[in-house]
Amino acid sequence: MWKRKYRSGQLGYHLMMAPGMIFLIIFSFVPMFGIVMAFQDYVPAKGILGSQWVGLTNFEYMLQIPDSWNILRNTVLIALGKIIFGTIVPIVFALLLNEIRLKWAKRSIQTIVYLPNFLSWAVVAAIVINVFDYHGPINSFLQAFGHQPIMFLASNDWFRTVIIGSDVWKNFGYGAIVYLAALTGIDPGLYEASSIDGANRFQQLLHVTFPGILPTIMLISALNLGNILNAGFDQIYALYNPIVYETGDVIDTYVYRVGLLGQQYSFATAIGLLKSVVSFTLLIAANKLSIKFANLRIF
């Protein structure tokens, strides 16, 4: 009797899932079927059903043009730079902050450095443009030391550095939270024991603190692996310009510019499809890695 009542409740569960599933079908799964465009010469007027099938032509074209290798290189270089510095800086910051005993100072520092994470890239781009302006503070600083001013945002030597740097600036504080949480989880007894053994602060850092947060570092790194093709569209789109396409154009900006604005829908969908497949594979691998090394499922 009780059991039947429980089971009949399953219809209720399906009804609760329904609204969300309808949205997912329309805005996630229908677009997935739109991927067939990659194998067509899609013409908006004819639609997906009426457009001509061209097999792998779009993919062959992709292999032929130099743009492809350029955007792939830029994407991976920028993403790798962000992953590496976006891991190191938060860890160093968390380790330093952890050494501070003054509660109010710690709290104030945290309040300030977490803030940039919650600003939009439109706002941060305005700040970056301002700071790296030809007459801006960085260039004034350089000139004070006798250097020529640099047009950072219009320089293929500097653009990727500015992108990686501003991303680290925006996210390092917030990124440190996980490490700070991991640090509070370290057994204080370990520090006492090591100081009785005569370890100094640096030795404690090396032999107690670092091993304590290593699992967290591994987990975050595994998660980041799935992002190797995400160089950060919102950021780059808000900061790049035709002069730095050579070093700053990444997969997503290329898809938007050539595909949507340039109306080469099929070609850009083909590029987007490759990106999705690679990212998906990497995320699955990351999940496997994190189960293996950190014993934690990401999803």
Binding site: F27, P31, M32, G34, V255, G259, Y265
Partner: peptide
């Protein structure tokens, strides 16, 4: 649906 996406252009066409 969280890990795989059709990409920007098919979504744009749907919208």
């Amino acid at each position: 649906a969280m890990l795989f996406s059709g990409g920007m252009i098919p979504l744009f066409i749907v919208v």
